[in-house]
Design a protein around this nucleic acid. Structure first.
Length: 890
DNA sequence: GCGGACGACCC
DNA sequence: GCGGGTCGTCCGCT
């Protein structure tokens, strides 16, 4: 910003910057209720606001390409031809962006047959001639050629669109070692991959710059080409035509006919009504406020830069720390924020933030001057955190007591948008506050006196963003947050820290046995196929064997070929029996088991005492859109159970030496009960209340026979259907699963619904209401949005309908077991029991029972699980006891 | 080294 | 062509 008396003309390449923003921001985080993606628009407007504030242009325009075709594609058909097709999520964002710009009073320019950069070139020349300072904003390197003393280029860095690199002539020389007007020669020599313009092989930026320093221009190099020695010289002489062609194409046209002159682009007033209208449609709340503030200050804005640093105090100790905490707590009944930085699970630093400022403590275990912090930590004051569980575990491992509610912003955000919770704090801060989180560059060396405490800075942002997220929650979700998710977090941390005991030598024996088996199965399969070598783990190679070599009929299509999955192989076995099929199935079963066993073995944390080896899973509280938990590292929610071989893996899960036994407790048919409850179907409710075998009872109604006369075949059909219903099962799906004709499956479903009419009404109603509201809701008020119910894409819409149908059922089941877990944990602790809850597998809980506590624990678990919800029928709980997970099943 | 596709395990 | 997950392997890509 030189010579303030000179007016500043800013010209932006709209398409290239919106496209960059599109890739810089997560596409799924910016979707309106009706399914319109807006990340490119959001990124562009945010950047624009920044530019207006920082650069204060007096004149402004945004240029767009009209299409992919221009005089350049006519000249060279392959120009830009390798570019991927525009992602569908981006399409449609450009017209909306143009609407937004129009509302803001910013002219948009296009020119048939030319690219946006040519418009930039033309306005840059005219602007310069007419005495403007010119600022160009573009993500296309070709615009570097336009830079001169009056024309500066702002170019998005790789870090993101909001970080713009300022190219003055000096900056160009520094970066590329050539003057701006020489840059197109560099590009012509090196080539531009994204434009599908190959350059001269073996010539990179360095070589190009060297030649240009010597001979001044591409023409100069052409004139002196015989002086270039070596392979590079040969390469140049052979490919010089490419460079000449590239140079022709990358020359920007600076004299195209435009309907406006720079002087016409003076910034006019914003249309606040139009802004409200457009930004409301885009659902940009915060951005709208910022734009309106800009409009009000009428171009003379001096607002604070959006990346405000956190107010951080130096480290405080003893009385100072005590006073600081007292003041902060008094000023903040909603709680202080806490961040815990760790190295391999050990606390290294903590940050704390109140409403006015943040501070930090460098953590060295056992220091007395932290006492005020420790007593705040142990107190009942709420702790506001982000992705708290791992941090909480580090504190507990350090032997610290943590009291009060953990208010986790990540969970709050997940409850509002359960499809994609923010993974990183920066994402959360951007989402809630529309601010950039200050982050440290790990490669940057900062002198200690300038070092910022990111623990403190993060805490400052965690607090503000979390309070914002909470304020935005609807009352139902807020209830789920306060009553279910927040108390559960601590329970899960405890379960993860405890882990589950594993019999390592037993597991090793299984591994040894399976390893010995696998080799033999592999050779047997190869022999059966009559091939020398094939990777049985490669679906691609398997397809060659099955369909080419063995000439089997083609199976179900997949994206890349034909299916070789277990169902497809079973189908082949029926139509084309062949020894290879059976051999392959055995090989797959065995290697799968072996793989599971090896994964578990690797996950064992070996204890000091014999029998104290344990596996610690991690539960992801924001891991599913339905409200369920997920488990990983390792996943203990998918341990085999169906086959007898698989159950042997379960036998490896046992109890520690100081415990008496394992106890498992699971809800029987909880989802069916919820469906009965939610639908209010008297028949189904009666079936549960009768307490007899559900599928037999339902089978009797559907097939019009006595319960005693329901055959196993009838029962399994009914069972498949009952479960399938809650998943949006089609007649086709049912026919496939039961190996019956579609017509029969259809008839079966009709009979079912004749008997249990309210179930059908209910399922229909869920989809209808979800379409109307935009979301579904569980019994306890957990919501899940379904924008795709209004999608014009049939497949997307039908997928959404099935998911919507299922989500109140699956989600309510998740709510119920979570409530039970909290209640059990509370009562176990109140009773002073030493037994503990270790695992959760969606409808099942696994406990390690201390000596002599079996009876009391069983009673407690039964009571709390059954009592976790009041449904129209009892929640039946089955309990089993045994020395290992398999034996404890019932 | 990364990520999509596939297949397999669970509720 | 049935909802919700995790994970290992293969394989093509950068």
């Amino acid at each position: 910003m030189t010579a303030p008396e000179k007016p500043t003309l800013m010209v932006i390449d709209g398409h290239s910057l919106a496209y960059r923003a599109f890739f810089a921001l997560p596409v799924d985080s910016f979707v309106t209720n009706d399914g319109q993606h807006t990340n490119g628009i959001h990124g562009f407007i945010s950047m624009l606001v920044l530019l207006l504030q920082n650069e204060q242009p007096t004149h402004l325009a945004v240029a767009f390409d009209i299409s992919r075709h221009s005089f350049r594609t006519r000249e060279y058909a392959d120009y830009k031809s390798t570019r991927d097709v525009t992602p569908p999520e981006f399409k449609g964002q450009v017209p909306l962006l143009q609407d937004a710009l129009r509302a803001m009073g910013i002219p948009t320019l296009t020119k048939e047959d030319y690219e946006a950069d040519d418009i930039l070139a033309t306005l840059a020349r005219k602007g310069r001639e007419e005495g403007f300072n010119v600022l160009l904003v573009s993500g296309d390197r070709d615009t570097i050629q336009l830079v001169n003393d009056e024309v500066t280029l702002l170019y998005p860095s790789t870090q993101g669109v909001s970080q713009l690199k300022r190219y003055t002539p000096d900056a160009v020389v520094e970066r590329y070692a050539v003057r701006p007007e020489q840059y197109p020669d560099v590009a012509a020599l090196v080539g531009e991959k994204s434009d599908n313009l190959p350059g001269i092989p073996k010539v990179g930026e360095k070589t190009a710059a060297k030649w240009l320093a010597k001979w001044g221009s591409l023409q100069g190099i052409l004139d002196h080409q015989d002086e270039i020695t070596g392979k590079v010289g040969e390469s140049f002489r052979e490919h010089q035509q490419e460079a000449v062609r590239n140079r022709k194409l990358n020359r920007l046209v600076d004299d195209i006919d435009l309907p406006v002159e720079p002087g016409d682009l003076a910034r006019g007033p914003m249309n606040t009504t139009a802004i409200r209208e457009v930004f409301t449609r885009l659902q940009f709340r915060t951005l709208q406020e910022r734009i309106l503030a800009l409009a009000e200050s009428n171009g003379a804005e001096t607002s604070a830069p959006p990346q405000a640093a956190a107010p951080v105090r130096a480290e405080l100790l003893d009385e100072e720390l005590e006073r600081w905490l007292e003041t902060a707590v008094a000023a903040s009944p909603e709680g202080l924020a806490l961040t815990v930085r760790t190295l391999e699970g050990i606390v290294t630093e903590v940050g704390i933030s109140g409403p006015d400022e943040a501070t930090f403590l460098t953590w060295i275990p056992g220091r007395a001057d932290y006492a005020p912090f420790e007593s705040w930590l142990a107190s009942g004051a709420p702790k506001i955190m982000f992705d708290a569980k791992a941090q909480l575990k580090a504190l507990l491992r350090a032997g610290l007591a943590v009291g009060g509610a953990i208010v986790d912003g990540q969970i709050a955000s997940w409850l509002a948008r359960p499809q994609n919770p923010p993974k990183r704090l920066a994402e959360f801060v951007q989402q809630q506050l529309d601010e950039a989180l200050p982050e440290g560059d790990p490669n940057e060396l900062v002198p200690p006196e300038d070092a910022v405490s990111f623990a403190a800075s993060d805490a400052w942002f965690v607090r503000r963003a979390t309070l914002e997220a909470l304020a935005r929650l609807d009352p139902g979700s807020r209830g789920v947050f306060d009553d279910i998710e927040a108390p559960l977090l601590t329970v899960l941390a405890r379960m993860e820290l405890d882990g589950v005991a594993v019999d390592r030598s037993f597991l090793q024996a299984l591994i040894d046995e399976q390893r010995a088996k696998v080799e033999g199965l592999r050779t047997a399969a190869l022999e059966a196929a009559g091939v020398e070598s094939v990777n049985l783990g490669s679906p691609k190679q398997l397809q060659e064997v099955l369909f080419d070599r063995l000439g089997m009929p083609k199976t179900r299509k997949t994206k890349t070929g034909y299916s070789t999955d277990a169902d497809a192989l079973a189908e082949l076995e029926r139509s084309n029996p062949h020894p290879f099929l059976g051999a392959l199935r055995l090989y797959r079963d065995t290697t799968k088991l072996l793989q599971i066993e090896e994964t578990l073995m690797r996950a064992i944390i070996v204890g000091e005492a014999p029998g104290s080896d344990r596996i610690h899973t991690t539960y992801v509280q924001v891991g599913s859109a339905s409200g369920r938990l997920s488990s990983n590292d390792p996943n203990l929610q998918n341990i085999p159970i169906r086959s007898s071989e698989g159950r042997r893996v379960r036998q490896a899960f046992t109890h520690g030496g100081e415990f008496e036994t394992l106890l498992t407790a699971d809800y029987s048919q909880i989802e069916m009960r919820i469906m009965a409850h939610l639908s209010g179907d008297e028949q189904l409710i009666a079936a549960f209340n009768a307490g007899e075998d559900l599928h037999r009872f339902v089978g009797a109604r559907v097939f019009h026979v006595d319960p005693a006369d329901v055959t196993p075949e009838m029962r399994s059909k009914v069972k498949a259907m009952s479960y399938g219903l809650a998943y949006g099962l089609s007649a086709f799906g049912l026919s496939k699963q039961l190996q019956i004709e579609v017509a029969e499956a259809k008839g079966l479903m009709e009979d079912y619904f004749t008997r249990f009419g309210k179930v059908r009404d209910y399922l229909r109603g869920v989809v209808e209401q979800a379409t109307e509201n935009g979301y579904t809701e569980t019994i306890f008020g957990r919501r899940r949005p379904f924008p795709d119910l209004k999608s014009t894409n049939r497949l997307a819409r039908e997928n959404a309908q099935r998911a919507a149908l299922n989500s109140p059922i699956q989600g309510s089941a998740a709510d119920i077991i979570k409530r039970a877990m909290i209640a059990i944990d509370t009562r176990v602790r109140a009773a002073g029991l030493s037994s503990r809850m270790l695992l959760q597998v969606h409808d099942e809980l696994v406990f390690e029972v201390a000596f002599g506590e079996t009876e009391v624990l069983e009673a407690l678990v039964r009571t709390e699980m059954s009592g976790a919800a009041e449904l129209a029928m009892p929640l039946d709980v089955q309990v089993g006891i045994g020395p290992n997970w398999d034996a404890a099943a019932h």
